[in-house]
Design a protein around this nucleic acid. Sequence first.
DNA 1: ATGCATGAGTT
DNA 2: ACTCATGCATA
Length: 326
Amino acid sequence: MVQLTSQMMIMDNKITFSNPLTAAQSPFGGRYSPTNLYRAAAAAADSRRYMPTASWKSNCFVDNFKFDPNANFFPTIDDSFLARAEALTKPESFYSSHFPSTFSNQTPVTRFESSNGINHSNHIGLSMTSPSSQDQLSSHHNPFYNHSTMNGMSVHQIAMHPHDLDIDPRELEGFAERFKQKRIKLGVTQADVGQQLSKLKMPGVGSLSQSTICRFESLTLSHNNMVALKPVLQAWLEFAEAEARSKKKEELNGHNNNDKKRKRTSIAAQEKRLLEGFFSVQPRPSGEKIAQIAEKLDLKKNVVRVWFCNQRQKQKRMKFASMQLG
DNA sequence: ATGCATGAGTT
DNA sequence: ACTCATGCATA
């Protein structure tokens, strides 16, 4: 067997892809700390996923509300917890300096419409199973990816680089930059890349969104995600450059929604600040605590829960990024 | 470019 | 209920 890249190899005279995103289960075992105290939050399968405008209008934060750190906003949440959270909501806090971008928007939200349509996000990207969080701390090799054989499909016109075992952050960074540069030179948008990806017919690789391409270029994906996507985008680049060389061009787009648009909840700056405060003292609040916070901020519990999930993901990325510097 | 969300696979 | 990869919508 000849290893072409960390995910591509020649086996039985066929070029084989180890699904880059099919990660093996972590050998380190469980590290998640399931809070066994969760109060089986019944969670009425609330079909409305977005904050109704009404509740926002009645929210004291929306209009001419002025944040007062000494005010007692959370009478039902234990005081020490509250105090710590409040202390950390101040602008000069260590926390705020770590999440500067989240303190910019002061615009309250009132643009929601009751959404009835369910989102049909068909995952067309790469199929995978989630790797362990610890994976992200590994930078010399990637022991979590299975080298499973894909059903005999041979993909030969895709140029491959013999030595690509690198998952060195430096190399990733360099590639991401080069990628963006070349992509722009080719006059291709991020959205285009994502769409054209499916034309590569790489096993297990469909299309990707503009968001993902953007995040790849700006290194705002998890390390694992970057590593997994690199060979795919590298293949696309080869493909695109070859296509450009042969002067072969074809343009076509067209993709837009109808009525069933998904609405994005927007959490006002004040609420966000408080959430950040809570997060700093307790990144993983129990379901009960989440419910309390949700009630206090007049947000839906699920919105708060998701916010914490996303905040954790973001924090992890930042942590990893900072590790690369020091 | 990024905030909020979904869904699959885990714990 | 969680993590992780990803996407839609929007700033």
